[in-house]
Design a protein around this nucleic acid. Structure first.
Lengths: 198, 198, 198, 198
DNA sequence: TATGAATGAGCGTTCATTCAT
DNA sequence: GATGAATGAACGCTCATTCAT
């Protein structure tokens, strides 16, 4: 039969469903139906549900986090503007989609049940944090900068949780504002900040 | 047959299991087995799985959050000491148990799937935030104090998430330290602080 | 503990429930709750669900059918008036209760599944038919009279079925009218009608 | 896996089982086993037990009642011969199968418990009655003819009930004879009989 | 590739029944 | 007599997965 879809489409559809319903409540049938397929057909693209979910999470790393990393590394732009751009992307990313952060959701729902999920979730957070730490190194020593980045990611995840609980996105806007305000209030380190990355 | 367990024990066992495995992956059979019962016997205590989970979440409100509220309201103790006590309880509560925060987990896993869960999760966070806000009102205007309290709860939840992802509790310790340091750094409002509570 | 109910009450409550919901859909819990008891307590009155249902059906024989037999045997009243009285009772009996005829219902639902039900259902119909046959013997030879009585009972049961399907009791009224009209149209046998029964 | 059965076969097997055991006592496992399947496999053909039962009942309308309607409409055959043919089919239909009439059984057992059953049971009886009424219109005015048809269907259902109670098919034969005798005794309307149907 | 029939294990739930208190 | 905790089997249903076509 002629190709009805492709691996990328399956990933995209599964991403939306898992974000909204969670890993356990998203069935292979749901995903297949969203792709216009029957569930058996999914096994041509992925060996099983876990592998599909891993591919979905890798996709999130390759898109959202990759985008943020790219912005953070763009040295043609002033550091503060880069942070603003990142926060802008972050806001757009999480406010334009229902279901919050799929990686955060999977982290709390299935990271212990499915060991294969842990490394990909870790990579997601590590890369995100590293990208932010880069920018904070213009204001703080490396160690402090890393800690600040961790705090910011934790705050964003915690705020997304509150946003879902109260179905109110204003908390997210406020959190973004706070982060930018605090950054601007930090003294600039004038010497070679050295993005001598790993 | 003679009594093998009681409602409270069932709640306690279910609480542990749901915190560790999540709502959907915890089966009535799991809970029953943890109580030494067959799964059908649970229906003497609860009309169904959702009702059991609600009872579990109410129990968390009546214990953990209630405890924190009590500390926050104890005006015989200086405000800073109260916050320290609360943070100490919070640290003990989340570090002595595996699985993080059952309310946060359920919030991200099942709050959309099971509408009955939303009010109880909301109450949990609202009471927790209100207790903290009370203390911050000694340092900030009410509105700011509330916002600070929201930030702290979001930060704790985000940090618990990181802790589960990285299986490392040091981030939690650091978050607690940061919160206390920031509080101590805030200027005390010397005039009418007015804990003239209801 | 003091007596909360008695065997008769249990039978009466079970009768209503089984008539309305059928044998299989009526649970011991339903019956117990209708009596203000817990289901375990029913086993003080009846050894099990089947025995309870048998008692219920015997009760119907002792009341409805017994009443009809009594009317049929009352030789102080003219035959036609006795048939009218029986039809009046029949109409009142089936139109004042929802659920139709419990014996007919059980006959079609459970007579093969529960062998103990067959003799009691047979007795119910046999006695009812015999009572009517007695009256028809004033108009027809015994064999024909019996056949007429069988026809009438079958017609009443079939009409109750239609009544339940269409939720319309007018068919029942019409059936009763037809039966009486046909009886009145039959020629009276003037010689020894002989109710010299056993 | 290669095909073990098909939708029609499932319907046929379920029809036999439900007729014999009733709706509530027929389990999905029973039906599946009768098809050589596991119970879960039935859900490829029907979304649930109720839908399967509805399909079964629709099948009865499409076969038994449809057959009777076809005979009744065949104006190439004299009216009396058509009624004889219908009664012959009716006798064959109900005497060659155990369990009586599945629609009558469901009517008394489950029509209140499962609202979806009512329309299909109503259609079954309505079509059957309408087919007979057509024939009686050659002897009686339309209104009377309809009433006669209703009586006949009620009588057949009541007789099937008796037949099941007494495990004796002779009552059914007698009922058929009576119906035909009464029809033949009715005066033919010689003028505009008018099967000028819609 | 895609289908769709089938599996098999498991789920939440029901319920007649038992029995120590 | 009545309770209510517990059983154990069964029920309708779900779902990830397999596989012949």
């Amino acid at each position: 039969m002629t190709q009805k879809t492709d691996r990328d489409t399956v990933i995209e559809r599964a991403l939306d469903l898992i974000r909204l319903r969670g890993y356990h409540k998203t069935t292979m049938n749901d995903v297949a139906a969203a792709c216009g397929l029957l569930k058996g057909s999914l096994y041509h693209y992925f060996p099983g549900k876990e592998a599909l979910a891993v591919a979905v999470m890798e996709r999130v790393c390759e898109t959202f986090v990759k985008h943020i990393v790219d912005i953070a590394q763009d040295e043609a732009v002033p550091v503060e503007a880069r942070l603003e751009a990142i926060m802008d992307e972050t806001r757009k990313y999480f406010l334009s989609r229902e279901g919050g952060c799929i990686m955060g959701n999977v982290a709390l729902e299935a990271i212990d049940a499915v060991p294969e999920f842990r490394p990909i979730v870790r990579k997601y957070f590590k890369d995100w944090i590293a990208a932010l730490a880069r920018l904070y190194e213009s204001r703080f020593p490396a160690k402090i900068a890393l800690r600040q980045a961790e705090r910011i990611v934790a705050m964003i995840q915690g705020t997304i949780m509150m946003m879902r609980v109260y179905q109110d996105s204003s908390m997210f806007e406020m959190a973004i504002s706070d982060i930018l305000r605090d950054f601007r209030a930090a003294p600039v380190i004038t010497t070679e900040v050295a993005f001598a990355a790993a």
